[in-house]
Structures are given as structure tokens and as C-alpha cells.
Nucleic acid binder design. Structure first.
Lengths: 131, 131
DNA sequence: TGGATATTACTACCACGGTAAGAGGTAAGT
DNA sequence: ACTTACCTCTTACCGTGGTAGTAATATCCA
């Protein structure tokens, strides 16, 4: 029985860096966040990473003076659980309704619509083959 | 420029009741939550409603002894902003990616897939007519 | 009238996200 | 050897979600 991890915004931003780089030092993470327009004190990032380690979301190994952090939770796992959780809370799990709001809420290109159609077709095939 | 409201789980549950009933007393809300398996003290619900009023999410009018609360934020507004916000934070706004995770994350019936296809077709038409 | 009941008001508490300063260690340059 | 820069650790503070007890107040009923 799996947990369902919920990450807040800074935590997610940190995880994104780790997912992207594989592993990173505090300074690395801080720099990446800065390049995304999020200027934080060094200690802020370090504290957050320590808190996240206590909760098992990341882990570290020491290399010389510095700690090198790596993600423990997988990106897929986090994304899925957060998305389905929101669908649950907002729409009582009605995926169609959720997608509908997604499409309404932001502009979406014709190309993306095509990709979506392909996605659904693939899903239909899986469905059919499953049974 | 509008704010983008973010509601936590209890707050959402309360809003759902208000959206559904139009308006409700504290006792009404408490009862509804209880029927959803969420047993809370009367005062808990009342406190939460007061906090939410301070933030402009709900409003009340007094009728005799009791307060009658009504939603201020619209369901559409909240849903859209929360969904697109999550899409932003998780997938940098890539809607297709988000839908993909939605479909993977939970079982989805053939009927729902059909509804989704219809939804996309409708969206395509709107797109074409818009320009 | 007086007690029971329902309702709001005030206050408090905990956990946690986010933020950061300050203390203290270690490595490296001059 | 001393300073400097960089690193972690500890501690703290604020806001807010969530939960609820207690006090004050209004209402109804016998």
C-alpha cells in the first residue's frame, strides 16, 4: 500500500532540479532556482533539503565538504499521485471533467490537440487489449 | 487582474457544499461533511468558515440566530485556477503531459474515453472558428 | 420565569511550508 | 598561521490549515 506524496511549490521546484540533474549540491539547486527567478538564501535551500530528507523525499551522500542530494521519489510517482489527488478533491475523480477544465483554462494549440487525440487512441487500444 | 485562489482540502469540501446547496448554515455544512465520512466538531466548521470569510472566499448573512453562508468564489473559477496552477507547477504548463498522467493514473472506462474524444473535437471546432 | 439547547466569538494548539540568521567546521590561498 | 570563502547544523519566526474547548449569547419550551 503506497503513500501518496504531496509536494508544495518550493519542494517541487527542488525535486525538478534533482530529477533533471540526477543529483546536485545545495549550491547547484540554489543556482538553478535563481535562474528560474527564485532567489533564495543558501541556508533556505539547505534547510528545505534537510526537511525533505527527514521525510524521505530526497537522500544525500557526503563528498568532501559538500552534501550531494539525489531524489528518492520518482517523477512519475509524484506527478501521478498529485494529479489524481487533485482530480479526486476537485471533481470527485471525474477525469473527463478535469480534462475539460484543463482545456478551458489555457490556450491550447492545434498541434497539442492532435497529440491529445493520439493519446486517447493509444489508451483505447490498451483498454481493448487488456480484456 | 484576478487572484488565483488555492483551496486546501477542508476548504474545498466546504465550498463544494456551498456550491451544491447555494447557501447553508454551519450545521448544514457540518452535516454534509459528516455524510461524506468527515466527522468534525461544530466549532471546527464554524471556525473554518470564519477564516474563509476573512479571506473573502465566502460571505454570510444573519437570519435570526444563525448565520447563513454562501460562496463568493465561483466553482469554475476555483477549479480552473487550481488545475492550471498544478499543470504549471508540475509540467511547466504542458497540458498534454498532464492529461497523459491523468489517463495513466487511474482506470478510465471506454465511455469516458468517448466523452473525451467528443470534448477534443468540440475544442478543435472552437479553435477553428476563433481565427 | 427559568432551564435546556443551539449558535457565534474568542482563544489556543499543533504541524508544516517557507524563510533565514547565526554558530561552527574545513579547505584553500597568501 | 591567519584570513577567507564555502559548507553544514541548529534554531527561530511567520503564516496558515486544521482541530477544538470554553465562554458568551440568543432562542425555545415547559
Amino acid at each position: 500500500m503506497r503513500k501518496k506524496p504531496q509536494l508544495a511549490s518550493l519542494q517541487l521546484a527542488i525535486m525538478r532540479t534533482l530529477w533533471q540533474k540526477g543529483e546536485a549540491t545545495v549550491a547547484d539547486v540554489r543556482e538553478t532556482l535563481e535562474s528560474e527567478g527564485r532567489e533564495l538564501a543558501y541556508t533556505t535551500v539547505a534547510t528545505m533539503l534537510a526537511k525533505m530528507e527527514r521525510k524521505g523525499q530526497v537522500a544525500h551522500r557526503a563528498e568532501g565538504k559538500a552534501f550531494i542530494y539525489r531524489p528518492v521519489l520518482g517523477q512519475e510517482q509524484v506527478s501521478r499521485s498529485m494529479v489524481t489527488d487533485l482530480a479526486e478533491r476537485l471533481f470527485s475523480g471525474d477525469v473527463t471533467l478535469m480534462v475539460s477544465h484543463l482545456l478551458d483554462g489555457c490556450e491550447i494549440s492545434a498541434a497539442e490537440l492532435t497529440r491529445l487525440k493520439a493519446l486517447i487512441r493509444k489508451k483505447e487500444l490498451e483498454e481493448r487489449n487488456a480484456r
